[in-house]
Design a binder for these strands. Sequence first.
DNA 1: CCGTTGACGTCGG
DNA 2: ACCGACGCCAACG
Length: 124
Amino acid sequence: MTEFQRRVIAVVRRIPPGRVATYGDIAALAGAPRAARAVGTVMRDCRQPGVPAHRVIAAGGALGGYGASNSPGAGGLALKRALLRAEGVEVGPSRVRGFDRVRWSPDRARHKRPPATRGTKRPV
DNA sequence: CCGTTGACGTCGG
DNA sequence: ACCGACGCCAACG
């Protein structure tokens, strides 16, 4: 286990349920702002308990991946969505809805509950 | 040590 | 809004 991998995992473990973070975010928090792709590689391996990998998504709220297309876990994306939705994160066909609202940030641990979504659409 | 690879990101078409 | 071309980085062979 390399230093980089440890740091990435450490950050991912801090993502609370109902919240998400992008690969880029994790990379930055891990000290390697341009290593988003590498973060993905780490996630691919690291399928360990205690690591909420399903909360790590792609930029802009895109789902990203969740299991190699040639792996036994290949329909993982469906699972990823299920897990997110189970935590209260609304997921569209190909995107997390209200992405900016559920996007996690380490510092302000105050956000008690997941912003949920309620009203199908509601201005501010 | 160098070339390839891949759960990514950004810009253009 | 969707698809494709580059760019970037760490891991692997």
